[in-house]
Amino acid sequence: MIYFDKVSKVYSDDSVALEEVTFSIPPREFVSIVGQSGAGKTTLLKMLLAEEKPTSGKVFLESTDVHSLNRKTINTLRRRIGIVFQDFRLLPYKTVFENIAFAMEAAGRTDDEIQSDVPHVLELVDLAKKTWSFPHELSGGEKQRVAIARAIVNQPDIVIADEPTGNLDPLNTYEIIQILKKINDLGTMVILTTHNKGVIDSLGKRVISMENGKIVRDDNEGKYVL
């Protein structure tokens, strides 16, 4: 479970990215965060990953204060969170298999686990045929599915998807959202940020709406409202 306690972020030029944001997300929930560019969605996610420190307030993952961790324990924290980005961010000189294996290696898993788990997640995202391709040989939708496979392979507690469909056509968008739903059904918390009205409206899950660094709505079966 995640808990944001009056978190504010003010950058050095006095621009406010987040202002007294408080909310919590229980385990196994599917939450969408919506809002215009600059509303503070990405800053919020960066806080959770300890990429940035809040100016005031605290972020808790279960009972751990995320920003009290040192470099080594941050790595352990990050292994409990799978991340999917809009621009995929695969490692260009590694094959699909190696990209996913890398996340497992980083988490200190054994070679046997890697050999058995990687094909399994590739099956889950329907990419078994592309195991030995390099990222530049894949379409946008396929790349994003590799990224999702990488995010879930360590069986994280949380999957963060930061505008995962931003670069995709409607069909691929639909498939990616279906995969995220499937992941959520299997018991993982999913945090999704998006601009895509259609996606939000079709999900029928909790929606947090942000504007100018503040939460303006938090609906349990929300729609995309601006």
Binding site: L49, E51, R71, K72, N75, T76, L77, R78, R79, I83, R89, L90, L91, P92, F102, A103, E105, A106, A107, R150
Partner: peptide
């Protein structure tokens, strides 16, 4: 540099 950032976010240690 972006690769390195990704590795960091995946939770790889500095040594790795």
């Amino acid at each position: 540099r972006e690769e390195i950032a990704v590795m960091r976010l995946v939770g790889a240690s500095a040594f790795y």
